[in-house]
Design a protein around this nucleic acid. Structure first.
Lengths: 134, 134
DNA sequence: TCTTGACTTGGAGTCAACTCCAGAGACTAT
DNA sequence: ATAGTCTCTGGAGTTGACTCCAAGTCAAGA
């Protein structure tokens, strides 16, 4: 699979794919005799992993460290486990922050829906809802 | 309230508070006769809003546009509603991406917990779980 | 009043994550 | 075999969001 096809498949640019490889976010990709990248199934699954992790906000550094450890062999299982656990923790926290912000947005949106109808905002212009859900 | 107190209260630096004000992420803060910032309750609630929205990943541009509209008066209710709705959409999508990534992390973590015990990874080294939850 | 420390501004610097570019080599259809 | 299109590399440039700095102002205690 050419870099063009891969970039289209995953919705990232060719430059980004090369950048990911240079940064160690994915291991070196197989090449043709002429030196052109030829992504195989294994390469693709690394790309897919990288795209997924990046889309959630993991840093390039964290992902490339995981890839580095993976290529080092079985002795790095504990290190990899620790890394993944830490990243999960970070994502759970980010998810909480997003949920808290969604609560506030929902509250504000509800008020503005009324405001657009009636022409005026209810209560004070700024006042958080102190949500307590979950 | 001084800028130092506010920065401690919300866990951001004084420089960031000044940057937020310069960028229009919060409206201009009240000043003392000598030109020193003196945050009142209203200022604080803007700061709180900005910190919350930023922590969820809204851009400085989006938040400052909301603040700009807010200071323009009642005719901007529809524009504000539209802006908030769009940001909510973006956050819901980001939340989904995080949840998908959490699924993968959980899958991998479970495998590594076994691997650390047994000394070997089960199944193929790379293979997504194809989660289908929710 | 003097000193010490917090606060001010405008502007420059940093960092992560791309994004773009030039010049050269590879492949494809005629 | 030549035009036209991809792809390559190394390196420079961009963007967003801070972060730091210098030089000066302000304020509270001895």
């Amino acid at each position: 699979m050419t870099i063009k096809e891969v970039s289209e498949k995953y919705g990232i640019t060719q430059d980004t794919l090369r950048f990911y490889e240079r940064s160690g976010l994915i291991p070196p990709v197989k090449r043709t005799a002429g030196g052109i990248r030829d992504y195989g199934p294994e390469d693709l699954s690394w790309v897919e992993l990288a795209v997924c992790m990046r889309s959630a906000g993991l840093t390039v550094e964290a992902i490339s460290e995981y890839v580095r450890l993976s290529r080092l062999g079985d002795e790095t299982f504990p290190a990899r486990l620790q890394l993944l656990t830490k990243q999960r923790e970070a994502l759970l926290e980010q998810k909480k922050r997003i949920e808290a912000t969604l609560d506030r947005l929902n509250y504000k949106i509800a008020r503005y829906e009324v405001a657009v109808e009636t022409g005026k905002l209810t209560w004070e212009p700024e006042e958080p809802p102190q949500s307590q859900n979950k």
